[in-house]
Design a protein around this nucleic acid. Structure first.
Lengths: 186, 186
DNA sequence: GAGGACATGTTGGCATTGTCAACATTCTAT
DNA sequence: ATAGAATGTTGACAATGCCAACATGTCCTC
C-alpha cells in the first residue's frame, strides 16, 4: 500500500476512479488507458494486468454505473404511480449526473460483453419493469410491451436531454403522468 | 475523371460513399480517414483537402443521413393519426436500415458542429413535430412538450431496438396508438 | 525461514491513426 | 501561355492499443 512501492496496491480501483473522472470530463472517445496509467503514476501497460483490453475496462466502468443506478432506483420509495414517477425522476437524475457513463452503459459494444454488465443491467431494467407491472391492472399481469414502451420513453427523454438534441427550451417532463400513459388498454 | 489521373475527380463523394459502408459495417469508432483514403486509391492525407478533420467528415455523413431521413419522412402520406403513425414507422425503418448512421446523427459531438447537420436535423424534427401538431386539438396549437414527448418515445424505441438493449423478444410497437398517447390532455 | 508459484509492474517495440508542413501536379480563368 | 487556385503526395510527429520479455514483490508450502 506504500506510495512508492513497486506494487501500487489499489491500481484496479484507482484506474476505475480516474476513469470515471476522465469519462465525464472528456467523453469515452478521448479516454485512454495509457493516460490513466500515467495519472495513476504507473507504467503504460500496467492497466492490462487488471483489464483484458480497453473495452473490458469500459465494461467495468459501465458495470459500476449499473450498480449505482440499481441502488438509486432501489432507494425510491412509494408504491403504484408514485413509485413509477419517482423511478423516472431517479433514472433521469442519474443520467444527468453522469451523462457519458449513461451513454456508455447503453452502448452496443459494451452490452455485448459477456462477463460484465449483463446482470446488473438486467436487474436495473427489471426494477423499472416491475414497478410498472405493479401499476398494471392485475388482469394483464406483467406486460412486457408496456414495460418496454415506458422504458423507451424514459430512455428517449434522457438521451434527448443529455445529448442536447432538442432545439428548443423544454419544461420538466410530466413524470406524474408517466404511469398513466403506459400501459394503455388493448 | 480518369482512373489513374493525378486528380481523383470525385474524391469527396467517393469518400462519403465508402464512409457510409465502413460506418455500417464496423461502426463509427473503427472508421478511419486513412483507410478510406487507401480504399479510394489515394494518399493518406488527401481527404483533408475535402474535410477539415475526422469530425467534419462524420458531420458530412450525418448531414447526408438527415437529408435522406427528411426525404423518407416527406414521402409518408396521409393526414392526422395515419400520418403520425406512418412517420413513426418510416423513422424506425430508417434507423433499422442505417443503425450506425442513426447513432452518429444523434451524437452530441456531431450535432455541436456549427456548419453541418443543424438545418437538416432541425427540419427532420420539425416534420415530426408538425405532424403531431396537426393531430393536436386546435385549441392547444403547437405543443412543444407533446412533440418532444412523442419524439422521445420514438427515439427511445429506435435506440433500444438498434442497440439491442432489450433483453426480451419484442413485438412491433403500437404505431397506431402513437398519436393517441401524445399529446394528452392537461 | 528457504524456495518456488503467482500476481503485478516495467521496458521496448510495433502498427494504426489524426494531423501538420512542405512540395508536386493539374485545372481554370485571364 | 501563365498565374493562381484546387487537389494530391511525401515525410514526419505524437498518441494510442496491445504484445513479448523481463523485473519485482507477495504468499504459500515445506
Amino acid at each position: 500500500m506504500k506510495e512508492d512501492s513497486y506494487h501500487h496496491g489499489n491500481l484496479r480501483s484507482e484506474l476505475l476512479r480516474l476513469g470515471r473522472i476522465a469519462l465525464e470530463s472528456d467523453g469515452e472517445a478521448a479516454l485512454s488507458l495509457r493516460s490513466l496509467a500515467e495519472s495513476a503514476g504507473v507504467s503504460k501497460t500496467a492497466p492490462y494486468r487488471h483489464f483484458r483490453d480497453r473495452r473490458a475496462f469500459l465494461g467495468a466502468l459501465a458495470d459500476e454505473g449499473f450498480r449505482i443506478l440499481c441502488v438509486e432506483l432501489e432507494r425510491t420509495g412509494g408504491r403504484g404511480p408514485a413509485r413509477v414517477s419517482a423511478m423516472g425522476k431517479a433514472y433521469m437524475s442519474f443520467a444527468v449526473a453522469h451523462p457519458s457513463l449513461y451513454r456508455l452503459m447503453n452502448s452496443q459494444s459494451i452490452l455485448e460483453l459477456p462477463e460484465t454488465s449483463t446482470s446488473w443491467a438486467r436487474k436495473s431494467f427489471m426494477m423499472l419493469a416491475e414497478a410498472i407491472a405493479d401499476e398494471t391492472p392485475l388482469s394483464h399481469g406483467f406486460d412486457i410491451n408496456a414495460a418496454c414502451a415506458a422504458w423507451s420513453y424514459i430512455h428517449g427523454l434522457v438521451l434527448i436531454r443529455i445529448d442536447g438534441l432538442f432545439p428548443f427550451e423544454l419544461g420538466e417532463p410530466d413524470w406524474d403522468g408517466l404511469s398513466a400513459i403506459f400501459p394503455r388498454p388493448a
